[in-house]
Nucleic acid binder design. Structure first.
Lengths: 194, 194
DNA sequence: CCTACCGATCGGTAGG
DNA sequence: CCTACCGATCGGTAGG
């Protein structure tokens, strides 16, 4: 389904992700992107169709990676707390492997063209529902306790949206272990030692 | 020090905060703002000097409110865990009382003009240092335990940056109590019951 | 507070 | 991949 992406196009998309992360989609000009990749502004259009296309590539690629990660975790036969740990690792892995893209994915998706935005939001909704389902499973399995599943989901999701600047400041392994500890402290029923 | 702000100017600033929150500073045009407040674009400049001025007013106002809140909490003679609770209440109070402005304050400050940005970042640095100091005090008072104070601060700060959309979805009192519980679970030394 | 308008910059195209 | 260029929109000003 996906068109193959040339090396040059990949390079342009990555440069765009860096700029979008730094200044936002709207404040980034195609001229600035051209300078960054060493081309004249018009030459970029030999590789992509529009500025929006760049955003679409960045956001949908992240969307797909998160969706694939979720599918893998859902398919594994482990208890809910281990699934949550895997989800934390997925988010931290994404944040550290694609720091610029993930930030754009989180902060700039509102600028997606309408048709893509509908797909994007539908994928996100699906992801959220799967996440919440795991939280509820953890309750059923007598591992977790919480009152409002939507609220506890929002709190955890907020913790997992690890900002670009923080990926530069802290080592991945440290962030991962601290977030696993913190989130499980929030979720676990009994006073720890698991 | 601060120039008095007329009612009309307040109205324009608030409208700008709504627009900046929704589409970002850069993607918001003065023409869109003019339409929102029912004026011709040029008429706005009878009340403000520039688009940047609007951002300055929004960000520095939030900055001041957070700084004042911090000063009040620092001056109170309570233990570190109660200070943290007060800080959580401060952030949630701000998020629910000025949802648009706080979002702009959090997300759009990079577009501040250089001279203001320097002041802004200095105030923020101060705030962060005070926050971390309270965390360390909690450790000294044998209330908290954590390894890396910068990292645990980042995690908590991330939890307190409550997004605009979430203020519309959950009741303030519910968010406040859940965040107090969650954050103290992360910080407290002994397995709860405090 | 409006009409009229300005220079700068934007995303993008034509043609080679 | 470049030169040359376009219409649209931007923040903001002049003058009343």
């Amino acid at each position: 389904m996906k068109a193959p992406v040339s090396e040059k196009k990949r390079h342009i998309i990555n440069a765009a992700a860096d700029l979008f992360q730094d200044r936002g989609y709207s404040a980034t000009s195609m001229r600035a992107l051209a300078t960054k990749v060493g081309l004249e502004p018009s030459s970029i259009y030999s590789h992509i169709n529009s500025k929006e296309d760049l955003l679409v590539e960045i956001c949908m690629n992240c969307s797909e990676l998160f969706t694939q990660g979720m599918q893998r975790i859902l398919a594994s036969e482990i208890l809910a707390d281990e699934k949550i740990k895997s989800l934390i690792r997925l988010h931290i892995q994404m944040a550290y492997q694609h720091p610029a893209s993930v930030t754009v994915f989180n902060d700039e998706w509102t600028f997606l063209p309408d048709d893509t935005k509908i797909i994007f939001l539908s994928l996100r909704k699906n992801y959220e529902n799967n996440f919440k389902r795991i939280l509820i499973d953890g309750k059923t399995q007598d591992l977790f306790e919480f009152e409002d599943q939507d609220l506890v989901f929002s709190i955890i999701m907020n913790m997992l949206n690890w900002p670009y600047s923080a990926t530069k400041k802290y080592k991945k392994s440290l962030v991962e272990s601290e977030l696993v500890t913190a989130i499980l402290k929030i979720l676990y029923k009994k006073p720890l030692i698991h």
